[in-house]
Simulated assay, not measured.
Amino acid sequence: MQVQLLKIESTPDLVDQVYRSLLDAISEGSLAPGARIMQEDIAEQLAVSRQPVLQALRLLKKDGFVLDAPGRGVLVAPLDVGWLMQIYQVRSALDALAARLAAQARVRIDPDLIARGRAATRGTDVKAMMAADAHFHSAIYAASGNPLIAQSAQLHWHHIRRAMGAVLQVSTMRESIWDEHEAIARAIAAGDAPTAETLIREHGEDASRNLASLLNTALQPASPGQTQTA
């Protein structure tokens, strides 16, 4: 399966651009679990030399997104349900703290964030859906007044993003996610810290359960012998 990516212009941060391009493809599902990635194919598609591709693949391997493959290339790592559940536990705790602090300050979350999120769910761009979700949660982190919350959440954001991408590709509950976001924002604006904390914690727990159900019943890794290019 040929996946089309935009060519990247040569810049000093070329390795980071290649890394992000591949990570986008992995998160959005264009590069599915088990898909084989060939260094020379990626270099040709992105119109870059092999060296930045090699370095980007090393970073992806270090971060747990690709694995060594028998023969040539690397394989996209499978989604590890247990590991992702642990990440969601940490994120849920951080979100609850952020919502409580934001509610204590009675911060008004920009309603345009919710409007843009709802608009994204009505389309087919999974990347836009993930970005909208990230912007909403980032707004709550900023509203908390504690910069350590955002810094801590960022540590595992790419794994959350990949899990979110897997769910959004098949989810029939995209609109209800933003119903939950809107209820959380209302509680924060009203200064109702207990409700805001409870709602966002339940929101994270629901996302975790939905992901586990999806991965345990629906996702099947691609054949290790199948070659995909980003």
Rank of each mutant, 00 (worst) to 15 (best):
residue 42 I to V: 15
residue 51 Q to E: 15
residue 60 L to N: 01
residue 90 V to A: 03
residue 45 Q to S: 13
residue 55 Q to L: 12
residue 68 D to M: 10
residue 95 D to V: 12
residue 88 Y to H: 14
residue 82 G to T: 13
residue 64 G to P: 10
residue 64 G to S: 04
residue 93 A to K: 02
residue 43 A to F: 08
residue 88 Y to T: 03
residue 69 A to D: 06
residue 54 L to N: 06
residue 47 A to D: 15
residue 38 M to W: 06
residue 41 D to N: 14
residue 43 A to I: 11
residue 45 Q to K: 03
residue 84 L to V: 15
residue 57 L to C: 06
residue 32 A to F: 13
residue 62 K to E: 14
residue 92 S to C: 10
residue 88 Y to L: 10
residue 58 R to V: 04
residue 90 V to W: 00
residue 59 L to E: 12
residue 94 L to T: 11
residue 97 L to R: 01
residue 34 G to R: 04
residue 95 D to G: 01
residue 66 V to M: 02
residue 32 A to I: 13
residue 65 F to M: 04
residue 40 E to T: 15
residue 55 Q to M: 13
residue 61 K to V: 04
residue 57 L to Q: 12
residue 83 W to K: 05
residue 70 P to M: 10
residue 46 L to Q: 11
residue 82 G to Y: 06
residue 63 D to S: 00
residue 62 K to I: 10
residue 49 S to W: 01
residue 61 K to A: 06
residue 66 V to L: 02
residue 56 A to W: 08
residue 88 Y to F: 14
residue 71 G to N: 13
residue 59 L to T: 09
residue 37 I to W: 02
residue 64 G to A: 03
residue 96 A to N: 05
residue 59 L to R: 14
residue 88 Y to V: 07
residue 39 Q to V: 14
residue 30 S to G: 13
residue 88 Y to G: 01
residue 97 L to G: 01
residue 48 V to E: 10
residue 80 D to T: 03
residue 45 Q to V: 12
residue 85 M to D: 14
residue 53 V to I: 07
residue 95 D to N: 12
residue 61 K to G: 02
residue 53 V to C: 01
residue 49 S to Y: 02
residue 64 G to C: 08
residue 67 L to R: 09
residue 40 E to Y: 12
residue 50 R to A: 01
residue 44 E to G: 00
residue 89 Q to E: 15
residue 35 A to N: 10
residue 61 K to P: 04
residue 57 L to G: 01
residue 42 I to S: 00
residue 50 R to P: 03
residue 35 A to P: 05
residue 82 G to W: 11
residue 88 Y to Q: 14
residue 46 L to P: 11
residue 70 P to L: 10
residue 91 R to V: 10
residue 53 V to F: 00
residue 97 L to V: 14
residue 47 A to H: 11
residue 73 G to P: 12
residue 40 E to F: 05
residue 51 Q to Y: 08
residue 79 L to S: 04
residue 54 L to S: 09
residue 69 A to W: 03
residue 82 G to M: 05
residue 83 W to P: 00
residue 69 A to G: 07
residue 89 Q to M: 07
residue 72 R to N: 11
residue 94 L to Y: 12
residue 46 L to C: 09
residue 80 D to W: 04
residue 54 L to G: 00
residue 45 Q to N: 09
residue 80 D to R: 02
residue 47 A to W: 10
residue 96 A to S: 15
residue 64 G to Q: 05
residue 90 V to H: 02
residue 48 V to G: 01
residue 53 V to D: 01
residue 85 M to A: 03
